[in-house]
Design a protein around this nucleic acid. Structure first.
Lengths: 232, 232
DNA sequence: AGAATTATTTACACAAGCTTTACACTGCTT
DNA sequence: AAGCAGTGTAAAGCTTGTGTAAATAATTCT
């Protein structure tokens, strides 16, 4: 991911220096403002991904900056305060802050909270749908893209092959009869001398084998197939 | 805004009752699970907007639930703990929690933190929807001007083509069925032998291809189309 | 209203996928 | 060991989905 940009608003030069150093070492880009007013201006910079806002500042303090931003600012705000007062904390959150950390704090906690906020935003932005649904024995199925991988290498399967593999994998470690496979995948009863299922299994095997040291299917003569779960 | 739904996971029945009453009085819909396992299952419920997760539980504790969810769960999680331990707090955040509140806490602070998280998500979502520019795989859509570019070169699309591309791109990397495209773009159910969608896709392809080294669409036979996100 | 642009329908060729067939092979039974 | 039923694989044939072009209908613009 691209480098994230943090804006520091605090009149304590020493702390700013310390935090800047730490955050830069953690891979962030850091800018700083030393008073509320210039901080307020910079807060509208689109490039900023997160704001660290100190409460105690001369002239325009943190709460006033929060109010000025209107409580629905598009850049998330993490408040810092010398006071550990609970009411303060609640007030900050109600005014639109995303989180609140009392000084003194461990750098690691600050980092964890920054990351938690940025992570949430990232998840919401990308609206991560249910990603890979099934992963068994080095074979993964991604149901939203229909992508199949075997040992991290992409495999091209036809629709029927995909469905077949999906049924087998979702019942991995258990015998699945051809009757069931035929009805689930092909939508018809298995008739005598119908070799379709065998043929599709064969094709899947042929596609997976070059990518895998072992056969993923076990044939149970007279009964059906098992997708080997491998973790035995 | 529609009523928000909160899932409570805590084995302390008394606390659950208390919190439920409070949260309901604040306008939330509340569901509860009394152990980690059933909580884990409910966590995948799409209807849940936020999870309150207690750390101290028999069998599957809060951290284990967090781990099981994989650290990038799409529903935000606020951890509750009896212990005020800092390391605990950091661990929870690093494992994917969005926030952390130590018991005992004021109801008002819990509410403020819940609202802070939900507010952020709301802001990001709106921002995303109203974001005028979509850029995926060297193709950009400017929704305010309806301009389309491919590798920085302007492309002229008709209205239907534009909408089609927009739907596909906003779900880039995922299968979009022809049924969905027909309903979203053409505003009607897909009927048999309706080739409209295919035709529009074909036209877009024809317009983009001279400007791009690779086909942006992947056809999933029998299923639909995918706009390739390219970042794989 | 007429022209131009855009959308939909139709037609057809092509390619992909599915099924059938054929035959070799395996493992079990007798 | 022979026979048999079940299985693996390859190739051929059939069916269906898809891409494209061209024709027709609808819409918009002037």
């Amino acid at each position: 991911m691209k480098q994230q940009h943090i804006l520091l608003i605090d009149d304590d030069h020493e702390l700013v220096e310390l935090l800047t150093e730490y955050l830069v070492s953690e891979g962030f880009q850091v800018s700083a403002c030393f008073d509320g007013l210039s901080g307020l201006e910079s807060a509208y910079n689109d490039d900023i991904d997160l704001i660290l806002l100190d409460v105690m500042m001369p002239e325009l303090n943190g709460f006033e900056v929060l109010k000025a931003l209107g409580g629905h600012h598009k850049t998330p705000i993490l408040m810092l305060t010398a006071r550990g007062d609970e009411t303060d904390r609640i007030l900050g959150l109600e005014l639109g802050a995303d989180d609140y950390l009392a000084k003194p704090f461990q750098h690691r906690e600050l980092l964890a909270r920054i990351k938690a906020i940025l992570r949430r935003i990232d998840i919401v932005k990308h609206d991560k749908e249910e990603s890979p649904i099934v992963l068994v024995n080095h074979v993964s199925l991604n149901h939203s893209t229909r992508e199949v991988t075997c040992h991290e290498q992409a495999v091209e399967l036809t629709g029927t092959e995909y469905q077949l593999l999906h049924v087998l994998m979702s019942k991995s470690g258990q015998i699945v009869t051809k009757e069931l496979l035929s009805e689930e995948v092909l939508g018809r009863k298995l008739t005598a001398f119908d070799r379709s299922i065998d043929m599709h299994i064969s094709n899947i095997r042929r596609k997976l084998l070059p990518l895998s040291p072992s056969d993923k299917f076990k044939t149970i003569r007279g009964a059906g197939y098992i997708f080997l779960s491998g973790d035995v």
